[in-house]
Design a protein around this nucleic acid. Structure first.
Length: 423
RNA sequence: GGAGAGGUGGCUGAGUGGUCGAUAGCGGCGCUUUGCUAAAGCGUUGUACGUGUAAAAGCGUACCGGGGGUUCGAAUCCCCCCCUCUCCGCCA
């Protein structure tokens, strides 16, 4: 959500942001609702003010005195008026809230122009990408794949997109998670093991609700939501709280399974480990002072990159253009790993600065030493990293002629052996 | 799951229909005193929105777990929900 004051004072900034993101929002309509809301608010408040004044007067009058009785009669009318106007106010307020929620976050000046994913800027490419490799095959075609990653039985037991990981399949997942968490810890992120169900208030604060409820699994009868990412419980950790400025920046990381309904996808995008309803991910999250947030975004991205480097996987970093940036983000980098068998890039991390867009909804603030006032923090997050696609790349890129997968040295201590085997 | 007791400002804790944004204490901040520390005395002490301003000050409204109701008026009465604690049951 944007600051309503920003909209009032600089509507052109908001219009420019909408244009850069290639969205269609009627800013004038929002402004009109804002004006109406403020007028209505003042009317209700002045009526309330009358009530309060009368209340003080009446407290001094003897009950049952003619003056008292007259006052009650008079205030009855005011009371009825308040009731009516207040109902109208609530209606307008709801409209205003919806209107404000329709406004996207402002893109940072460094975000490139562009409408489509093709216009994202390749920020850097790391490692050699051998486009040829005739031997390479998609991971789901590797002989024995189904033994380690049992999609059929997963489908029987739960449904499509819920594989069993068996033997070395389970072991490699555990090794990757352990590796990620250890490395993230070394980079300064405090490990958190959060709840994997959240209530509606939390899902609203991070923006999953009200629009994207179809993407989450919801429980009955308690109406809790299975987390689509650890970002949700992690961000909400400080919801409605004021953090000491001296405590900033706060670095946290968390592993959770992530649950996504992801309706409407098809084709090779969803083959094998590319897209699952349940997958494992370590999320990095920072709460930072606004003055440092873009430096902190770069640092977080480098932390995620380092993981790929240690895994010796070729990857590239995309700087998302305005049209592909996303509604809530001010700036976003995607990390994509090269998948030799599929001959394409797979997104394994998305690192974003939300500035105050999330913290305003979640009311996460710090007290400024300078002004003594509370200010909204900036939130930054990114994966560090998501397991299945990293795993897909490892399998495809490192498959040996003998059918085994050679693991990068960094992973060996966690996996316990040098090769993953499908036998 | 059953029974009971509670949720008030940073914390402790008063307040059962009106002058209560809320007594008091602690903590915090400022000043005085002080060689330093400690102690004492005095003062001050939340958040949000609107309005106002160059920015402030000021003014208005709301907030006593959340939501709804009764009433001229609700921290206080009624209803629903959430959470915490104690005892019992069950259980990894």
């Amino acid at each position: 959500m944007l600051d309503p004051k920003l909209l009032r004072e600089s509507p052109d900034l908001v219009r420019a942001a909408i244009a850069k993101k290639h969205l269609e929002v009627d800013v004038d309509a929002v402004l009109a609702i804002d004006t109406a809301w403020r007028a209505q608010l003042q009317e209700v408040e002045s009526l309330r003010s009358k009530q309060k004044a009368a209340n003080t007067e009446m407290a001094a009058l003897p009950k049952g005195s003619p003056e008292f009785v007259a006052k009650v009669a008079e205030m009855k009318a005011v009371s009825a008026q308040v009731k009516e106007r207040d109902a109208q106010l609530k209606e307008i307020e709801e409209k205003f809230k919806q209107a404000m929620l329709s406004l996207p976050n402002l893109p940072h000046a460094s975000v490139p122009e562009g409408r489509t994913p093709e216009e994202n800027v390749v920020h850097l490419t790391h490692g050699a990408v051998d486009q040829a490799r005739p031997d390479a095959k998609p991971h789901w075609e590797i002989p024995g794949f189904e033994k380690l990653f049992d999609f059929s039985r997963g489908a029987k037991v739960t449904g499509a997109g819920f594989p069993f990981y068996v033997g070395d399949g389970a072991r490699i997942v555990r090794a990757l998670l352990h590796f990620f968490l250890e490395e993230d810890g070394k980079a300064g992120y405090t490990e958190v093991n959060p709840p994997i169900f959240v209530n509606a208030a939390s899902a609203i604060a991070t923006g999953q609700l009200p629009d994207k409820e179809g993407q989450m699994y919801e429980t009955t009868p308690d109406h809790l939501y299975a987390v689509p990412t650890a970002e949700v419980p992690l961000t909400n950790f400080f919801r409605d709280e004021i953090i000491e400025e001296s405590a900033l920046p706060v670095y946290r990381c968390a592993y959770t399974p992530c649950f996504r309904r992801e309706a409407g996808s098809y084709g090779k995008d969803v083959r094998g480990l590319n897209r699952l309803h349940q997958f494992d991910k370590v999320e990095l999250l920072k709460w930072v002072h606004p003055a440092t947030s873009y430096d902190e975004l770069d640092k977080l991205r480098l932390d995620a990159e380092r993981l790929l480097q240690k895994l010796e996987l070729p990857y590239r970093v995309l700087l998302m253009c305005g049209g592909d940036l996303g509604f809530a983000q001010s700036k976003k980098y995607d990390l994509e790993v090269w998948s030799a068998g599929q001959k394409r890039w797979l997104e394994v991390s998305s690192c974003s600065n939300f500035e105050t867009f999330q913290s305003r909804r979640a009311q996460i603030r710090y007290r400024s030493k300078e002004s003594g006032k509370t200010e909204l923090v900036h939130t930054i997050n990114g994966s560090g990293l998501a397991v299945p696609r990293v795993l897909a790349a490892l399998l495809e890129n490192n498959l040996q002629p003998d059918g085994r997968v050679k693991l990068p040295a960094a992973l060996v201590p966690y996996f316990g052996k040098e090769y993953l085997t499908f036998a």
